[in-house]
Amino acid sequence: MMTLAKLMRRSETAVFLIVAAIMVVIGLINPAFWQADNLFNLLRANVIIGIMALSVLVVMISGGIDVSFPAFAAAAMYLTVLAMNAYGHEGVMLPFIGATLIGLICGLANAFFIHTFRMIPLIVTLGSASVVRGLLLGLVGTSIVNIDRMPPALIAFGRSSLDIGGAKLSVMVFVYLAIAGAVWLFLSRTLTGRSIFAYGDDAESAKRVGFNTRRTVYVAYGLAGALAGFAGLLHASMIWLANPRDFVGYELDVIAAVVLGGASIFGGRGSVLGTLLGVFLLVLIKNSLIIMRVDNTWQGVVVGGVIVVATALTAWRDRKTLA
């Protein structure tokens, strides 16, 4: 039984209340906010950041950090789109599997270095991000694949939507929620998923109890890479554009969303629900700033400020429970 007090102490509750409060305020300022069109657009804007946030969440729970996902996403997207054009492929299933596999391989490479040489994840993923981006731009090319050359199947897939009361809700939102559900099941209901928490708590103890910690590390980073690769191609299909320089600066937004959702940078803590709420909160703030015509540069100030305040609040709360 979850009592009300317990519910109130969960960080998910806090994020939810903040989201609700912001929505009420924006709704008062501009009632058009509550129109289905606007809300559906907002949800659509959650999809890519959200899938990437889930990828970072898994790594963060294991006690690591991943800043390579934007590069992996760009590589998976660009290579897949180029390959589709080269072979004139008409489906979407195979390309998405391909993009996911490219991300998976990159993620496993991260895991290899982190596990074999006991390297610090931040350094490894910074390095692999740089290498992957460099190789992509140097060997594959820098030209943007515009809408006129984008595979039509991909565009059609990205456009698919449901008509709900005259407003269009992108099917991609359901793809996102399905992935979130799968990640939740994986994290909470499989032994490997639980081993990621255990590993993030105390790697040594995890080994002592009998977890195969090598597999834990490979699964965590592999899954993170795979999700990034998938999100990369999905992004291209939603914006009808494949730019190899895409996703620069996504690290901050995504990691911010995960931290807002209550995950701990020190490992062991974090939840899918919290991450979904954190992503929604971040997108909501950014969108409202656009609606309020706040300059792009000032958006960075607001996002950065939100991160600092949110982490300060969680740190303050943790210290209070410790005392």
Binding site: R194, F197, S205, V209, G268, R269
Partner: peptide, 21 residues
């Protein structure tokens, strides 16, 4: 140090060894 996992529940900490074996 008990070798327990603070993020997991009491039940999970207790059951984990059995499930693994």
């Amino acid at each position: 140090d008990f070798s327990l996992f603070p993020s997991l529940t009491v039940a999970e900490n207790l059951a984990m060894g059995r499930l693994l074996s």
